[in-house]
Amino acid sequence: MTEPDLLAAYDALLLDLDGTVYRGGEAVPGAVEAIKASRDRGAGIRYVTNNASRKPGSVAEHLNELGFQASVEEVSTSSQAAAAVLAERLDRGALVLIIGTPALTDEVEALGLTSTRVFSPEVAAVVQGHSPDTGWRDLAEAALAIRNGALWVACNVDATLPTERGLLPGNGSMVTALRAATDVEPVVAGKPARPLMDQAIRSAGARRPLVVGDRLDTDILGATNAELDALLVLTGVATPGQVLEAPAELRPRFLAADLSGLLVPVSEVEIAKQPDWDVQVDDDTLTVTGSGDPLALLRGLCAAWWQAGGGPVTVRAGDDASMAALAELNIG
């Protein structure tokens, strides 16, 4: 009997964008084909992004330009989630100070709130999303409002933003600056908090969704917080070494090189003991022997080390094949 592939166990995919589906203006290799195959088999598709700088329609348009089939309804953004959080907590018409792009302003105003970019005592809340144009003056206005008691909602706290040029400062870097200036913690709407994930699940009408992403601290932690399974892909931020040493709440159930992992047998992507690799645990050291796929080795290392408790670890090769595989993973 043929083993079912990973997709067969789930009715919807909650897909991260930056670093998972695309990097800036380029589709991640294999992503278009994997998502099309998933859609053709009836899986619900939701593009779930912490990037609050663009409207859902613009995100869908960009996806279509890259070869993905995407409708506006399939896009869930952290700006939508942040606006919903504000609407739940504020009176209609309340004044909200915006740090971010016009796309964030549109989402806030669409829910009956009033926007401004200048502090006044009437400001009831500050909402902060990514914009490449955010500067000191924007943060200064927000700091005044927050210190005056305004609710502070951050669309996300991603420290970096994957692009085709490499990792650039993300909204979380700006949030850190504002946190330092106010000694206040924001309410977070995007991943890893639940509002954005819950919004995407409701939109898809999903009962068994699978979270797919490239970041441990947002995608995988978001899945943990929402009590969902997750597939980590190594096309963006997370590195093999970080995965191996991840604490319990940042550990995915599945691991693949890219989105093609959705269409292979579960045993080929699930983090578990591997038949081609032997991993011995001795205190804080792992010794490896065997041969085969380096990613299979990583899954085996994670399974052995996480069962032992996890944390910082030294990995040693017991033969030439394992030495080569560890070098490819940049571990040891």
Rank of each mutant, 00 (worst) to 15 (best):
M1N: 01
L7V: 03
Y10L: 01
G19C: 14
Y22F: 15
R23W: 06
P29M: 01
P29V: 09
V32R: 02
I35H: 04
I35A: 03
S38I: 01
R39E: 13
R41Y: 07
A43V: 01
I45M: 05
I45H: 01
Y47G: 00
N51Y: 09
K55S: 14
A60C: 12
H62I: 02
H62W: 01
N64G: 06
E73Y: 01
S76W: 06
S78E: 05
A81Q: 03
L86Y: 09
A87E: 09
A87C: 00
E88K: 06
L90D: 15
R92W: 07
V96Q: 10
G100Q: 11
G100N: 08
P102F: 01
T105N: 04
D106L: 03
V108H: 02
E109Q: 12
E109F: 00
G112H: 01
L113D: 07
T114Y: 03
S115I: 04
T116F: 11
R117Y: 10
S120I: 00
P121L: 00
E122R: 15
V123M: 08
V127C: 07
V127T: 06
G129D: 02
S131I: 03
W136P: 00
R137G: 04
D138E: 13
A143Q: 14
A143S: 15
A150D: 11
A154G: 12
L161R: 03
L161C: 03
P162S: 03
E164I: 10
R165Y: 14
G170N: 06
G170K: 07
T176W: 08
A177W: 14
T182D: 13
K191N: 07
K191S: 06
P192Y: 09
P192D: 10
M197N: 03
D198R: 15
S203G: 11
A206H: 01
R208L: 13
L210Y: 05
L216R: 09
D217S: 13
G222M: 09
G222T: 03
A226S: 15
L228A: 11
D229T: 02
A230L: 02
L231R: 08
G236P: 02
T239A: 12
P240C: 06
V243Q: 06
R251Q: 13
P252S: 12
P252M: 10
A256H: 07
S260W: 04
L263F: 12
V264W: 05
V264N: 01
P265Q: 05
P265Y: 04
S267N: 04
E268G: 03
E268R: 14
V269L: 12
K273P: 10
K273T: 15
Q274Y: 05
D276I: 09
D276Q: 15
D276A: 13
D278W: 00
V281C: 04
D283H: 05
T285C: 10
T285P: 07
T287R: 12
T289H: 10
S291C: 04
S291E: 10
L301Q: 07
W305C: 15
V313L: 07
A324L: 14
A325D: 10
L326N: 11
E328R: 14
I331S: 08
